[in-house]
Write a protein that binds this DNA or RNA. Sequence first.
RNA 1: GCCCAAGUAGCUCAGAGGUAGAGCAACGCCUUGGUAAGGCGUAGGCCGUGGGUUCGAUUCCCACCUUGGGCUCCA
Length: 621
Amino acid sequence: MPDEDVDDASEAGLPIDSPADPTLEILRHSAAHLMAAAVTELFPGAQYDVGPATSDGFFYNFRLPEGRTVSEQDLARIEKRMKQKASQRVPFVREVMPRAQARATFDDMGQPFKVDIIDRIPPEVAEVSVYRTGNFVDLCRGPHVPDSGWLKAVKLQRVAGVYWRGDERNEQLQRIYGTAWFSDEELQAYLDRIAEAERRDHRRLGRELDLFSFPEEIGSGLAIFHPRGGLVRRIMEDYSRQRHEAAGYEFVNTPHITKSDLFETSGHLQWFADGMFPPMELDGGTNYYLKPMNCPFHILIYRSRQRSYRELPLRLFEFGSVYRYEKSGVIHGLTRVRGLTMDDAHIFLTREQLDTELHSLLVFVLDLLRDFGLTDFYLELSTKPPGKAVGSDEEWEEATEALRRAAMKMGLELVMDEGGGAFYGPKISVQAHDAIGRTWQMSTIQADFQFPQRFDLGYVGPTGEKVRPIMIHRALFGSVERFFAILLEHYAGDFPLWLAPVQVAVVPVQDDAPEVMAFVADIAGQLRAAGLRVEVSDHPGMRMSKRVRDAEVQRVPYVVVVGRQDVESGSGVIRVRDTRLPAEEAITEMTVPGLVEKLRGEAAKRGPEAAPPQRARRAAD
RNA sequence: GCCCAAGUAGCUCAGAGGUAGAGCAACGCCUUGGUAAGGCGUAGGCCGUGGGUUCGAUUCCCACCUUGGGCUCCA
């Protein structure tokens, strides 16, 4: 995420000296200036807005004259001009002046954005600083590198449209993104990291491994899962079901559409109508909506009869398909779609149970995520969104504090996300780092005092009085589709054995030798009997090295190669997919019974065999 | 939704106002091969969809759909 929260007023103001050893941030901020200098030369009359450093590089926002636009083809020209300036070692010269003078200067230059920034500097600031780089002048607090000779390892990356001051009601400016490093080696390493992320891109892997696709005929953001993808997904879901069952959840099912009343009561239509598919209007004027959330349905299950405190916590779970009308520009692979399946559960409980339940829930969540191979977490606490929330401050406070207490007990880093909660309650989200260090938001847990009121929920307490329960909304995968994509990228397609759609490929060396083929069938049979998913490479006439390659390309974890030499010994030479090892080291000789034993153990490590289903527990524990 | 791009064979991509090409994949034949691509051949395309300009459009123009990178948004 680029650093969007640019406080542009802070760009001017207090004097800061040019440092002897600039930081990467200073380098990049200087590169932004240099780029703006090049752009204003190449596009006379261009107006520049703000240009900070980001976590990966820098950007600068522009408005070009006469409706001109910067296209990607222009980037090469701009970059070339920057390189020229870099070789000229143009100094960055700092100058402090009264703000009125600075304002007049930028006004004369036809730079309204800078004038606006000066006008928004707090009145007590009397002086501001500007930096000159050749003919380019920018309002800026600094500091900067001494001269443009520092800015050699620079690459412009892309152009984007951005709303002025980040508000979609404002006009759109053009932003040019670039990256800058101290050395060409560092720049290259960064570009290599991008290439690595591209190699892992789930959209690419999904196609190459024949897991899923997005047919144009269905519509944007709607995926279909192919047999192999469906298999992986089913394993994920089955394992999740089994763990939920063991954790005391009960399974429910609810329809995909509902009359509008339900979402009027919940408040979704008030707050999120834009994000919902438009209604289907039936004769008589009744509107039906595709559900964007499962919670109101689960609430109706709770409310279907009188509830007793003895039933609580009541944990209702569903793989619920929901549909959200995401804006066309935000749809992305499986991670941002219009139709998705949530591993959604709603827990109804008493106030007194909240702390205990939240704690055991967090333990459960992290444990399950670890089973899927994600191990590096931190937590984020999202609080009341100003102007977009229902409920009293006291209720929000109570819910937020309960979440905070639970989060603190986990011994993980806790980051605040002020104003990031849902309209009905605060949330904890579990953030996970993947294999190449990227952060993904995974599970969310929300404490909700509002829906129980809106739907007038109650339970009969120990002394016979009616009491209002509270609710926890929680999803571990979030969206199954998105979680699938994250795992695919995390593993770069190399799923662990228990998730791999094909676990063992059996490759004959001589496919026209009956004794070899009989042995191949025997091995495949033994492996299948051990519960493994086996594929025999039986395409006649194909070279065995090609068969091995095909299995590798499909990321099959184990490849068993058997030929005449092995028939007598009953062994095979086994290739183990292991990205940490060179190919030749991953090849081992092993007898077939030995392999069966080894894989039986590994395949059963996780997945349906891991924890035998237990009876759902009641609330008492 | 907005800005910048892009849609040509299953995939990766050339191409040009006169009815289209390569590599890989698929299929067939030959090759009898011991751990990541054997050889030859065949087939495969409404050039995203719909309009317009033109004698003629896959190529130029417009709209829409889809995709990618951003912005805004994300219950």
